[in-house]
Design a binder for these strands. Structure first.
Lengths: 165, 165
DNA sequence: CTGTTAGGTTGCGATATGCAACTAACTACC
DNA sequence: GGTAGTTAGTTGCATATCGCAACCTAACAG
């Protein structure tokens, strides 16, 4: 009994999930501490003890997460030349690419009442706050969820609905 | 003895963390399955069995996560009028707001080699792919991490570095 | 050489996860 | 209207992960 016949969009979803970049990405940063470590790194935390004191994370968990994020290419692990006991964890280009994700989450939390932050991210040049991150069309128009559809690589639309009502 | 004297940016970080929207947001969606459930919801999954079959998640975990996301105001839980056994989980406006986060993560994964997706999100009007999400200045200029700084609510810059080298 | 700091690792109890089986409503069929 | 099947869970149990505290080693500082 192929259950797929009665559920075309589920089988489309499963097929799309096979090549979706989200599951592997979630494997790397989709857990509580990874996100907070990332936020710390974006805010200038660099040493093991800084992360530990700044986040209040257990040392063994921090050690494990830093190792995984280094293995995943998000962080870089270097010896501090000024003190050979110290290790500097810095963001790689790949790790910096997560800025949009972290900022989008931050703005979402801000908008939906999970606490208004005391500091705001601003343009270093003129000090004006950054824009709210949004999904944009090719010409820059902001797009809502209803304005979107999924298309195949060649441009044909697919069976995947976008949260259709 | 205040250890803060030797670590000014850590104490600035801890102070900023108190009102940061990220930790509560992470509490809600910062775990493996919450992200994937959200992706499913954005792709049109609506019923318990659809999520279960589509994601391969254990039923008790799914039940727990759906409940938490409903409690957090991300999902809405309604009875299906056409079949009173069924329950429809749909995104609230708050949940739809997470589209930017999920899409940013997806684009990041795509860019950094975690699998190229077979389907692409496009503008429903003209079928052209959406832009890459990025941080923008007030005038729309794209900004990198080095171009940014933190400012206080009143516009004064703070002690928080932005991943300074 | 002694004390301290940085960055871990180890042991252990608490918590979360995943699988399979069970239940309680409801629907569809005959 | 009795029976089978579907939907949305819950429960029990084995395993994996988490967090805390303590311990460890290498590198300083005096």
């Amino acid at each position: 009994m192929p259950a797929d016949q009665s559920t075309p969009h589920i089988s489309a979803f499963r097929k799309a999930a096979l090549t979706c970049p989200i599951p592997p990405a979630v494997e790397l940063i989709g857990e509580k501490w990874a996100f907070l470590i990332l936020r710390g790194a974006l805010n200038g935390l660099r040493h093991f003890e800084e992360f530990q004191a700044g986040l209040g994370i257990a040392r063994n968990i921090l050690s494990d997460r830093l190792g995984k994020m280094v293995a995943g290419g998000i962080l870089q692990r270097d010896a501090d030349p000024s003190d050979r006991r110290k290790v500097v964890y810095s963001l790689t280009a790949k790790g910096e690419g997560l800025l949009t994700v972290v900022l989008a989450l931050r703005q979402w939390g801000e908008e939906w009442g999970h606490g208004a932050p005391g500091v705001i991210l601003a343009d270093g040049r003129d000090g004006r706050p950054v824009r709210k991150i949004c999904v944009q069309a090719h010409d820059g128009r902001p797009l809502r969820l209803h304005d979107l559809k999924w298309v195949d690589r060649d441009g044909a639309s697919t069976a995947l609905p976008t949260a259709a009502e």
